[in-house]
Design a protein around this nucleic acid. Structure first.
Lengths: 242, 242
DNA sequence: GCCTGTTTTATGTCTATACATAATTTATGT
DNA sequence: ACATAAATTATGTATAGACATAAAACAGGC
């Protein structure tokens, strides 16, 4: 037990001890950890206290429990990395740069004319189609082409997207239940002009789709010029060092 | 309460009810959920049972609790997407294609000659440098350039990387405690030949670094030709639909 | 108004106990 | 030997109570 643990509650301390042993490699995937009654004796507490600590670690995916057999350190097969994809405005501001938004186009389309690859709005629905440019310190940072289902988000028809980025607006107004991200690389192509780069420049493309139940909410394709923008994810956890 | 809940334990049912209300949008970010004593009365159970259900949802990030104020639906500021970055061999095999590995080069370098941008091995350590090509049905799928610290993983010096991909081998043998992923787009450049594409072709570049404590384990740069490879993440959760 | 304590209240943590359940081990009958 | 039943055991779930603690609400004094 380390000195700075004195402020932690007992169950948090039990949890931290086991988590530490897993993260340091003392406990390895597949290892059995002490039985609840052993931990109970070691920490001099009730079983519920131990149980709460272990339940938290199960929830976090670090432990697995098998009745009659005991509690084991998880063996993470597929490695899940947490990748933060924040709002572009927040990203730019967070870098200490000045954010500016430009609305390049705004149209309301009938559902039938929407590319079903991008969104499948319900029959008869109207869809708001937006093209925006995000600038950081005056330099093009990303261009986005977005569809918003006005059936799912009727308020979007009234929103002023010349000052608030559609992404930020939706983030604050509309909850989703399902989402899909797709990350690809491609040449800048027809958006090269808006990004101030050459047509052949390699760009990072982020497709994001969200739903609420069965109903599509939005689809956005954000194009970042290859240089200057990375998606970075740093995290702590346990797994095989692939 | 739905009919298929009859098999769930009470705390799981409370949890499912609240989770459902959040995911369906009935409960929105920032909303207060009923107090523990109210849920206790509603479900006719002890407070610990309610508490366990809510604790799980806090752990999962769906709820936030404030003493004296109550329990609230979380307002996810930064949107975290779970992105699965599995082992390439598993990825190819999972697509129903035949995986083949080619080891293009293998060298042991002194720490001093390693680009510190890629890895900062401890003084005097030796580093294994590998270049591999991954093929799916005979077609180049990715090329990787990898460094492995032999100080951290001495067994790697003996491993046969002509049959097992270094990523798969490390995944199975070495636990990490910290990792960093970086995703960029760039032109194929000098690796174009190995990928059978044109030099200017846009490629997706995945940099992955892992540590165990302070000690670096591996750095790998995997280059995927833009066409044919996407990183896709599909998930369920709750948040603003940005 | 503004800055204090004081009270209230919802969550935080913990106990000691009870019975349920699933899986393993041991015993038993044929 | 083998299938079957019984005992064992670790986790799963739940209870009813207790005291701690942080934050909001309220009061009183300046």
């Amino acid at each position: 037990m380390s000195l700075d643990d004195i402020t932690l509650s007992l169950h948090a301390r039990i949890r931290a001890d086991i988590e530490g042993a897993i993260l340091s490699g003392t406990l390895r995937p597949g290892d059995r950890i002490p039985f609840e009654h052993e931990l109970m004796a070691r920490y001099g507490c009730a079983r519920m206290t131990v149980n709460k600590a272990l339940s938290g670690l199960v929830e976090a995916g670090l432990l697995e429990r098998r009745r009659r057999a005991g509690t084991f350190v998880s063996r993470p097969q597929i490695h899940m990395a947490a990748l933060a994809i924040p709002d572009i405005q927040a990203e730019v501001t967070g870098r200490g740069q000045i954010y500016r938004l430009e609305l390049l186009s705004r149209d309301v389309l009938p559902a039938a004319s929407v590319d079903p690859e991008r969104m499948r709005p319900p029959r008869g629905a109207k869809v708001l189609s937006l093209t925006c440019r995000h600038l950081a310190d005056g330099v093009p940072f990303a261009v986005e082409e977005r569809l918003i289902s006005l059936k799912a988000v009727p308020e979007a028809a009234m929103a002023d997207f010349t000052t608030v980025a559609p992404g930020s607006w939706l983030l604050a107004h509309v909850p989703w239940t399902e989402a899909e991200h797709r990350i690809t690389a491609a040449a800048a192509g027809r958006l090269a002009g808006a990004l101030d780069v050459d047509e052949g420049t390699a760009c990072l493309i982020l497709d994001r789709r969200t739903w609420r139940g069965d109903q599509p909410i939005t689809h956005v394709r954000q194009v970042f010029p290859g240089a200057g923008f990375d998606l970075v994810a740093r995290f702590t956890g346990a797994g095989g060092a692939g």
